[in-house]
Design a protein around this nucleic acid. Structure first.
Lengths: 183, 183
DNA sequence: CCAACCATGTAAGCTGTTACATGATTGA
DNA sequence: TCAATCATGTAACAGCTTACATGGTTGG
């Protein structure tokens, strides 16, 4: 098995699938957009691109200045597998990256599944914290500790609310815009 | 200047200040509590403890089985400096770690300053996103991209609401419980 | 002509992860 | 006695950051 693809690797793969880009252009994306808290330093991106190319997931074509990277069939495969992977354990950051890239997959069923799983995971998470806040140790904990836990509660609640709203809006959008009738 | 203390190092310092602990006990904390997404693997914690000890921030005393670590004066100094540092640029995770440890500092003024700065930073952040969502590119962006941005908005809003509520509750708590009159 | 930007690369160093290894003690 | 847990350690590896280095091009 080839070395695992890192989050940065997937971020690059996703951006490259959406549009052929040079290493420099990719760096600019990380510098300027909200998406991705990844470093735009050359020391991270160029080695990562090399490793993706070596793994056959992207291919470079020379252009007048520098080179352009395009995704390969096996790169598409790896990216799709990642996008469809279960929502377990991954951080919100990574999951949002996946959500953003699900767009290019254009598969409402997969996106729907993702959002449902995302909300479910958040609800499980919330239940776990609630179990804690209703235990007997909770009332005797210092206020500041309880507030730190409350931070987690509010975040998870925001996640759930976001996922429900996103699902509602996307369903409306999908039903308006020529539903996919298979192909 | 000695090598910078890592987030894991501060987490260890904070836990050790609150209570003398062994490496094993510290690992258990990471395994069982909600706080800290740090690994409990021996390969991370024991080397980190060694490095803290080498830097003179903690000291170990032998006990029947293993050893206990206690914070040193210079460790306290380093921890306090970190707790009082500006809220700029750090991730929410790290900031929450700081908030939890601010408890042991027992300095309402510092905690208040932290929460105010935290809320301010979140508001600046929110304003930045709002500037984006009211720009001319926003309406033409795909729905899914807008939803990804909405995730960020909801998170930051949750941060602000949490900080405001935390401040309110703590002020009430401080005014009830024998306000510090210096000394 | 000089500054700024385009475009890529590498070397050093630190950190953390995984995996393996050791040995003592406790409980069934 | 055997498994589980206590308690610590280390070696190999991967990854990212910082910093440095190199050239070409564009614009004033």
């Amino acid at each position: 098995m080839s070395p695992a693809i890192t989050p940065l690797g997937y971020a690059l793969l996703g951006l490259i699938r959406a549009e052929k880009r040079s290493g420099y252009a990719l760096r600019k994306v990380f510098e300027t957009t909200l998406l991705g808290n990844y470093s735009s330093s050359p020391g991270s991106i160029y080695p990562a691109l090399k490793s993706l190319e070596k793994a056959g997931l992207i291919a470079s074509e020379p252009i007048p200045r520098g080179s352009l990277f395009a995704i390969t069939p096996s790169g598409r495969e790896a990216l799709d597998a990642w996008l469809a992977a279960p929502v377990a354990g991954e951080s919100a950051d990574i999951l949002m990256l996946r959500f953003a890239f699900l767009q290019d997959l254009d598969r409402p069923d997969v996106t729907r599944g993702f959002l449902v799983a995302f909300a479910d995971a958040a609800r499980v998470n919330l239940a776990g914290i609630r179990a804690f806040t209703t235990s007997d140790v909770w009332p005797v904990m210092p206020l500041q500790s309880r507030l730190a836990v409350d931070f987690g509660v509010r975040n998870v609640e925001a996640h759930i609310a976001w996922a429900e709203n996103a699902l509602t809006q996307l369903e409306a959008h999908w039903s308006q815009n020529a539903p996919q009738t298979g192909g």
